[in-house]
């Protein structure tokens, strides 16, 4: 018990020593800055041409703006364009893929869903499977790798 108190007392003294040093340092820094300010202030033009001054640039870490595939090619989905619409349909169940799989923006996804439902009602597209003609079409996205996980 006695030892412990001793150790604490030692530590306290050491700490106080450090804080004293810090105070000294800070005062030195203030003095330095004030001296530089006084030396620089008469020659204001010198500051403008100083190469060490920070330069104003745009954020270099800003990410590139993402654009969905339909907006990129400026396509508005039409219900008669069955070949395009069938790419947003599951070949196994005929269901429309969600936004987390297709990677479309809200408006385009809504348009695609509306167009597919129209086409199905007009007997242009099957509802429970994908048209056999379009089964080997190139894939626009991978349904196995959705942006957000889902339970299916």
């Amino acid at each position: 018990m006695f030892k412990l108190t001793k150790v604490i007392a030692q530590n306290a003294s050491a700490l106080s020593g450090i804080s004293k040093n810090a105070r000294l340092l800070s005062t030195a820094a203030v003095r330095y800055s004030s001296s530089t300010a006084t030396t620089n202030s008469p020659s204001a033009n010198a500051i403008d041409s100083n190469p060490d001054e920070p330069i104003q640039i745009s954020n270099p870490f800003e990410k590139e703006r993402k654009v969905c595939i339909l907006c990129k090619h400026n396509i508005t989905p039409d219900y008669k364009n069955v070949k395009l619409l069938s790419q947003f349909q599951s070949p196994y169940t005929g269901r429309i893929y969600g936004r987390h799989i297709t990677g479309l923006c809200k408006q385009k996804q809504e348009d695609v869903e509306k167009a597919i439902r129209r086409a199905q009602h007009c007997a242009l597209m099957p509802t429970y499977h994908k048209d056999l003609e379009f089964l080997k079409d190139p894939k626009l996205f991978d349904p196995e790798k959705p942006i957000r996980p889902h339970k299916y």
């Binding site: 993402k66 969905c68 219900y79 990677g103 479309l104 385009k108 007009c122 007997a123």
Partner: peptide, 22 residues
Amino acid sequence: IRRNVYKMEEPEKYECTLHEEM
């Protein structure tokens, strides 16, 4: 067999919002 009447609408000018959604 099937008869469907749809109104033809001009597509509105639209800016992609995918970046904001992500």
